[in-house]
Design a protein around this nucleic acid. Sequence first.
DNA 1: ATTCTGTATTTTGTATTCAAAAATATCATT
DNA 2: AATGATATTTTTGAATACAAAATACAGAAT
Lengths: 218, 218
Amino acid sequence: MQKIIQHSDLSKPVYDRLKQMIEEGELSPGQKLVQEKLAQDLGVSRTPLLKALQKLQHEMMVESIPRRGMYVKKVSLQEMIDVYDCREAIESIAVRLTIERSSDTDLEKFKKVFEPFVNASKINTTRYRKADENFHDMIIELADNPVLKKMSEVSNIYKRVYQYGLIRPPEETMVEHMNIIHAIVERDIPAAEKELRNHISLSRAKLIEYQKEKSTKS
Amino acid sequence: MQKIIQHSDLSKPVYDRLKQMIEEGELSPGQKLVQEKLAQDLGVSRTPLLKALQKLQHEMMVESIPRRGMYVKKVSLQEMIDVYDCREAIESIAVRLTIERSSDTDLEKFKKVFEPFVNASKINTTRYRKADENFHDMIIELADNPVLKKMSEVSNIYKRVYQYGLIRPPEETMVEHMNIIHAIVERDIPAAEKELRNHISLSRAKLIEYQKEKSTKS
DNA sequence: ATTCTGTATTTTGTATTCAAAAATATCATT
DNA sequence: AATGATATTTTTGAATACAAAATACAGAAT
């Protein structure tokens, strides 16, 4: 029996594809998205394309200037810092809810995420990046709060922080991740919150550092 | 000279009107939104209506079941509690940013919001509710963080908490508001954060109380 | 009377069409 | 050659058209 994938909503695969294209730089920041052309490229009409673009606009991946057009959002260093402020807020609550609401077996899953890197001599940054994303997504998911989930979708742009490369080397963040995970598994809410806030604010501090470098250089 | 309001985007006024209709109960929770009918009532075609509905969907004001239709979101007590968890996260960061980034004159504006109620013998709940909304919106606005602003739009549904009536009487929350404002004006970040967290978590606690009452009653 | 089934109607999701605005190209004038 | 006015093309935003799915309904079978 063949599994028939029904797309009751064409905008969904279009959305997924566009998101991928933006994340992978196939569509570059600032680029204008000409609707008719893009729709043709993706093999759909403008209607489902527009629906997908509106979702991306909501997630701050694209920008719309009325009567002008839609553009791939340029993410400035300042906005990246803004995202990190939000993530600290969102994820520190999320980790609390996660611990409160999850089973031991669910919490154990966190250990698995960074396992491939614990004894690795050389860490593959792409894989590590994915694990990092996965880790943060898990916290949001297990928090089991639909409003929080929606909010975190807004800061999806954070996934584009890597346009600046990894902010800090895995060797540095790995320890922090392990500390957070330890606190989660031990169900130590204050410790988990503290470690997570620390982790995020160290990255934010690094971004602020870059920002200062940039401004003094020019 | 007459002021001509240009709508370069028809979905904007449609969005505003729909939001109002939902907030004021003109469209009731769970109600199906038949597109053709609604579009006719609002005097537009389905295209701008759909755009507005999609925005409202992102803000969790309406729900979409593919191939079935759009419905006014029912907000359960649990979801209201979820919103309060998010608001505590969002607004405590927001108040920090507000203090960091605002001028004295901007901060002074907070005093004005609850001024009409300081010596009032009997507080008009509708007006107080508006002031409360206004107060929280101001914190988000002055925080001057576009990502945070977008996120707080998601929890717009919180404005519908009043479907359960005011959670706590003005006499109780008024003091808390004054404490927060005092800390803000004094630029005391830790105090402002603490007071705000306290204020929100007391309301959340009240909601949890209601939830327990409800479950024991049935 | 109640459940089942096939048909008609409604409604959604997508494509297409159309008008108006914006961008671009063309041409004249200096 | 540079500037500015005008015409042309492109593109957006809104309306409409259309196909497919969901729903409502009527009549048949139990």
